Simulated scan of single mutants.
Amino acid sequence: APFFFEKPKAMSVEEGQDAEFICKIMASPTPEITWTQGNRVLKSGGRLKITTETSGQLYTTCLVIKKIAPKDSGNLLLVASNECGEARAMLSLEVEKVEAKPEEKPEPAAFVKVPKNCETLEGETAMFDCKVLGEPRPSLKWFKDDQELEEERYIVDYNSSGVCEFSIRDTVPTDAGWYTCTVSNPHGGQSMRAKLILHLKPKTEPAAFIKVPKNCNTLEGETAEFDCKVVGEPRPSLIWSKDDQELEGERYVVDYNGSGVCVLYINDTVPSDAGWYTCTVSNPHGE
């Protein structure tokens, strides 16, 4: 008599999906295989497809019900019979109803939090943030000087709740200025501007001479002058000395102006003023 090598399994299928039942039967001689539901014998056609494949005494039968509907719920009976007897298998089919999604109401893209001005230091990361709403979800773009920003330094993090963070890494002086965020969907759009204020790092330059002092000849009692010009950032400090002693006293006048020009005046010169004078300039970056 026929017997089940592999019985079909009960199924729970979401409405609109396909259901497939597979069963393997051992039998000899060839069995007659029927699928029924209630009082109805199922036949291939329309949404139903029944196939049977044979390999020796093994028969594989398959029932496919396409686009399952609630009316397909219920018990299915599979019967395999021949002159030696029969085998029966009962299984259930449950259809899960899909709840209709609420209809989405169209809503134009708009800002619920606008980007604000950002202030940061050159070389640091600048960030603007905003929040938008709209249905369908708005597209979002950032611009500067009417050019869309697409370099790797520009990072846009726009999450599903409508919050957007726009970051500019490794800021440079040319990043300063106005930025525009534009949001849009098929029902409308908006643009908002915010300004990046960038504080530039002070330039650094070691102290150095660009004009060195030259030897000076003068008469006793006259005024001797040495002049030079220096550069550096921050502005270098400047010291005049003779014989390793810093010059102090009313006869020594140092005129050191904002453009880096320095003049040392030695008034009412005396014989002991003769000799070598040293001008030393320095700042935190060099001497």
Rank of each mutant, 00 (worst) to 15 (best):
Ala87Thr: 02
Ala87Ser: 11
Glu94Cys: 09
Val95Glu: 01
Glu96Phe: 01
Lys97Cys: 01
Val98Trp: 00
Lys101Glu: 10
Glu104Pro: 05
Glu104Ser: 11
Lys105Ser: 08
Lys105Thr: 14
Pro108Tyr: 01
Pro108Asn: 04
Ala110Thr: 11
Ala110His: 14
Pro115Leu: 02
Pro115Glu: 09
Pro115His: 04
Lys116Trp: 00
Asn117Ser: 13
Asn117Ala: 13
Glu119Arg: 12
Thr120Ile: 14
Gly123Trp: 05
Glu124Asn: 11
Val132Tyr: 01
Gly134Val: 06
Pro136Met: 13
Pro138Lys: 06
Lys141Thr: 12
Lys141His: 10
Trp142Ile: 07
Phe143Glu: 08
Asp145Thr: 10
Glu150Gln: 14
Glu150Trp: 01
Glu151Gln: 13
Tyr154Met: 09
Ile155Cys: 02
Ser161Glu: 04
Ser161Lys: 15
Arg169Ser: 10
Val172Arg: 14
Val172Ala: 11
Asp175Arg: 09
Gly177Ala: 05
Trp178Ser: 14
Cys181Gln: 10
Ser184Phe: 05
Pro186Tyr: 04
Gly189Phe: 06
Gln190Val: 07
Gln190Asp: 14
Lys195Gln: 14
Leu196Cys: 04
His199Ile: 15
Leu200Trp: 01
Glu205Leu: 13
Pro206Leu: 03
Ile210Met: 11
Lys211Phe: 00
Asn215Val: 05
Cys216Arg: 03
Cys216His: 03
Thr218Tyr: 02
